[in-house]
């Protein structure tokens, strides 16, 4: 498959763009949620570490938006800031609030939810990135290699938190198990390509949904076994499929905040 934009078939290009939006929006929203945590992590060392992860993740989103820009989809900043909720292709899990309260007031964020969401997400991302390294679209394969290096540390980081908290106090275990339940409720669209499933799967851009799900479960097994637990089953589908632009109010609220300054004057240089 050649990479010159002008020789991509329209079907291929459509499938590619849809996949890129899914990848970009996922990282963009999750990084936004991470940035709301700034200054509020359980201790200062963790604040520094998780902030670094959020930056990496924002960097990954920026790379995907840039690939879309190169494909003629428009300016990367506009793609990140100006698209309405119904055009967003991120998973519902990525848009969920961190817990009670608005970040500018006095939020009571849930660290257990942060750990579980980030760990399960990072593992899902790892499975995808491993597959994307052999993507038929060369620029995407190259991006995957770059992402992969940083992702390794993210995964280690969240895995350590996950196992530590699940092998500690009863309260920690209770909170973590609640968080696992919450996160798994939203896990139905993580590996979904939405309505573009057939188109994406046939172009050799990335592995099939079912293959990624199986890989995720396989990778999670040793972690759960070491804790005497079973890997939760990935739901076949969620109530809303973010890949098809179905979202919660949380996304609307997130977009309002993250584009507040941008929308003052989208044409201006900031």
């Amino acid at each position: 498959m050649s990479n010159a934009e002008n020789v991509l078939s329209p079907e291929y290009k459509e499938a590619l763009k849809t996949l890129l939006f899914q990848l970009a929006d996922d990282d963009f929203l999750l990084s936004f949620r991470g940035s709301e945590w700034l200054g509020l992590a359980p201790h200062i060392e963790e604040d520094v570490a998780s902030s670094s992860i959020s930056q990496d993740t924002m960097g990954h989103a920026a790379m995907y938006y840039k690939l879309l820009e190169d494909l003629g989809e428009g300016n990367a900043d506009a793609l990140a800031h100006a698209r309405p909720a119904e055009e967003r292709k991120n998973s519902v899990l990525a848009e969920r609030v961190n817990g009670e309260g608005y970040y500018l007031e006095t939020p009571e964020y849930d660290w257990a939810y942060a750990v579980v969401r980030n760990f399960f997400y990072a593992q899902a991302k790892k499975v995808k990135i491993d597959s994307l390294r052999t993507s038929s679209y060369q620029p995407l394969a190259e991006t995957a290699v770059k992402v992969s290096m940083e992702l390794y540390y993210h995964l280690m980081h969240w895995k350590l938190w996950f196992t530590q908290l699940l092998s500690s106090t009863d309260e920690a275990k209770r909170r973590m198990n609640n968080a696992i339940e919450l996160v798994m409720k939203d896990f139905g669209d993580i590996f979904s390509y939405g309505n573009a499933k057939d188109a994406i799967e046939k172009e050799g851009l990335i592995a099939k949904e079912e293959e990624l799900k199986a890989n995720w479960t396989e990778r999670m097994k040793p972690v759960f076994e070491s804790l005497g637990m079973e890997v939760p089953a990935i739901p076949a589908a969620s109530e809303k499929n973010g890949r098809n632009g179905e979202h919660t109010e949380d996304l609307t609220e997130a977009l309002t905040t993250l584009s507040e300054v941008y929308r003052l004057d989208p044409a201006a240089a900031w």
């Binding site: 700034l38 060392e45 930056q55």
Partner: peptide
């Protein structure tokens, strides 16, 4: 500054101000 991190008006600014605030926490540490 953290109040403006999620609101920073471009990808570049979002990355820059995130890094900056992270540094400040690091100084505190």
């Amino acid at each position: 500054e953290k109040e403006w991190v999620p609101k920073a008006p471009s990808l570049h600014r979002k990355l820059g101000i995130m890094a900056k605030v992270q540094d400040e926490m690091g100084h505190g540490q």
